[in-house]
Simulated scan of single mutants.
Amino acid sequence: MLGLLHGTWSYRQFIIDSIRNDFANRFARSRWGFVWMVAQPLAMVLVYALILSEILAARLPGIENQYAYAIYLSAGFLVWTLFFELLTRTLTLFIDNANLIKKMRFPRIALPLIVVGTGIINNGILFVAILGVFAALGHLGGSELLWIFPMTLLTALLALGFGLILGVLNVFIRDVGQFVTIVLQFWFWLTPIVYPLVIVPEEYRYLLQYNPLFPIVNAYQNILVYGQSPDLATLIPIALLAIGLLVVGLLLFRKASPEMTDAL
């Protein structure tokens, strides 16, 4: 474990340069690169808001803003876009970079760290854009917005923990990637992002405690929609889970690294 940390620190400039190059390649020959980065999630929010706002806006207690449902959606999508990007990119990370892994000597753990760095920056840009939309809709936040920073870190750790484990397994069992893609579709709809919690029948709400993403999404909604601090009692178990998954992922990665090159 200490060797992984030492290797990461030794190659920190490589990681930083790789993150910078990722953005440069993404925006190459595009005059509106940053616009397209946030346009897709915001367009998805707009589509859901136009279709479902009349049905579900009245189910959001405590919000008098006429654009309440769009605000609620934005909070949930901010979490999901980060989690989805980090998990899906890490899932195929080692396969996508097979040639790099075979031809260059560098700590392999740098690859998921590059993905995390890029994803957090992307999410930060989206967060700023969403705050601009909120301001235009007359929904300004206060000091509770500072909670977004630790919540972003928690989301990234959870996604990296899952992604690292599944990414290593996907090198040896390619069906893992296909299976996870299907699971994520169900996961999205089993998390109160598009619909409010009150729409879930009470006898089934206890099932949400088994969804590790639910407390994080709920915390984002409390912060951005209701201007409230998150409930730490519900987040501590998720933080412990994220750390546990990350430790397991790192141990699995370390043990499987010698065989990964041959499998790729």
Rank of each mutant, 00 (worst) to 15 (best):
N25W: 09
G177K: 06
G3N: 04
G249T: 10
T8K: 05
Y67R: 15
L232Q: 12
Y72P: 05
N218Y: 13
I173R: 04
F27V: 02
L208E: 12
L5G: 05
N65S: 12
E202I: 04
V183H: 11
V171M: 10
I173T: 05
A233Y: 14
F34C: 06
W187Y: 14
D262F: 13
A28F: 04
E259W: 14
L4F: 00
Y220Q: 09
M37A: 07
T191V: 00
L224N: 07
Q13C: 02
T90W: 14
N21P: 13
L264Y: 01
S18H: 07
H139P: 03
F162S: 09
V133N: 08
I236D: 06
V194H: 03
T155N: 15
V248R: 08
L5T: 04
A49S: 11
I236F: 10
Y204M: 13
F186N: 10
F188P: 12
G3R: 02
M104D: 03
D17V: 05
E203D: 08
Q13L: 00
V194E: 04
S30Q: 04
L246I: 01
A24I: 07
G244W: 01
D22V: 13
L224I: 14
L264A: 08
L50A: 03
P61V: 06
K255I: 15
N211R: 13
L264W: 09
W9A: 00
F134A: 06
Q13K: 03
Y206R: 13
V180Q: 13
F134T: 01
V133R: 00
V247T: 08
L126N: 06
E259D: 15
T234K: 14
A159T: 09
L160W: 15
T181I: 15
A28R: 04
I109F: 05
S53M: 00
M104N: 04
L240R: 08
L73E: 02
P215E: 09
N97D: 12
L73H: 07
W80Y: 02
F14R: 03
L197R: 01
L197H: 08
F27N: 03
L164Q: 01
L164A: 09
L131T: 02
V116K: 06
I114M: 05
R29A: 01
F27P: 06
Q66M: 13
D17L: 11
R254T: 15
L235Q: 05
S257I: 15
F94A: 04
F83S: 11
F253T: 13
A135E: 09
W32V: 09
